[in-house]
Design a binder for these strands. Structure first.
Lengths: 159, 159
DNA sequence: CTCATGTAATTAACATGTTAAATAGTTGCG
DNA sequence: CGCAACTATTTAACATGTTAATTACATGAG
């Protein structure tokens, strides 16, 4: 059976489409975050800590899809603004324990209604069923490509 | 009919899933680009110019999903490496005309086989039909959210 | 023609992405 | 115990994302 050729044009490219799709969604949330002087990434860190409870930095990186050097910088600003606290991780002196602080929780709760409204509008335009379909496909995509994440397909194909 | 609530957790969030999906795919291409000292964004500029022919900067921004200030910097490095050339745009002194140069074309052609192999591997793991499904859904998502791109859903809902 | 307005590109300033290297603490083996 | 190898985090250096301001040119109303 024949393999597909590469995407003919950049409009039909998977990385480009994922990027533009993300931008289409995030452009709705960005103004809200900007009004509260919180970056996307800072917001993701807050949400992860709120949702999961105290975590070490590596876990936050994993769950928020942020690289460790970026997180180091983000931690500084979030601590300065008292949205999170940094403590020692019990039993391993290398790790740091990150926890959300009351002002962080307050911010999340304050933004909750507007987040809901934005999400509703996105859902209304795109359709609730298609959102679920898309989330399912994305999850399947991620699972299908994981393992040997950083080696090239060429190397994998040479096994 | 009831509206859906916000995604319970960050794993099922549309922006996060799109980000992780893109990362899952790009991690396969990144090593190839790194070996040739080309960034993702530089590569997108080259591909757009190769595919479409000479364009002004705004068009490249649009097609490559790169903001104008980033493109200004990228142009400098691509010109230094002689991958593109910058000329005057006929009939409008504000615009610049970007064109791919022979070394740029050569790079794209040189990488073509490896790109194909990587793409084939991604397709093999995820499934050709699901790739098309995903691309269709992403296109529909983008179309559904466009127009009033930078206003908030709250404002849109207040009409 | 002229000036106010609008647009394309650049610059500025700061946050984040990204890879490599450095630091500090941990673990296991002899 | 003592050291080699490993792991978590940080730092460094540079590219890009992002918004606001600036510059240069274009356009249209009067």
């Amino acid at each position: 059976m024949e393999r597909s050729l590469l995407p003919k044009n950049t409009r039909r490219s998977l990385p480009m489409s994922l990027l533009r799709g993300r931008e289409a969604v995030m452009s709705k949330f960005r103004p809200m975050l900007a009004r509260h002087n919180v970056s996307e990434q800072q917001w993701r860190v807050l949400r992860v800590l709120q949702e999961t409870g105290p975590l070490d930095a590596s876990e936050v990186c994993e769950r928020a899809s942020i690289l460790a050097p970026s997180l180091t910088r983000i931690i500084k600003t979030l601590v300065e603004r008292q949205f999170i606290t940094v403590g020692k991780f019990k039993g391993d002196g290398r790790r740091v324990q990150l926890s959300i602080a009351p002002p962080g929780t307050a911010l999340i709760e304050e933004l909750q209604p507007e987040r809901q409204a934005i999400y509703d509008e996105i859902e209304r335009r795109f359709g609730p069923e298609r959102i679920e379909e898309l989330l399912d496909l994305l999850e399947a995509l991620i699972i299908s490509q994981n393992g040997m994440g950083e080696e090239t397909a060429l190397e994998a194909a040479e096994d």
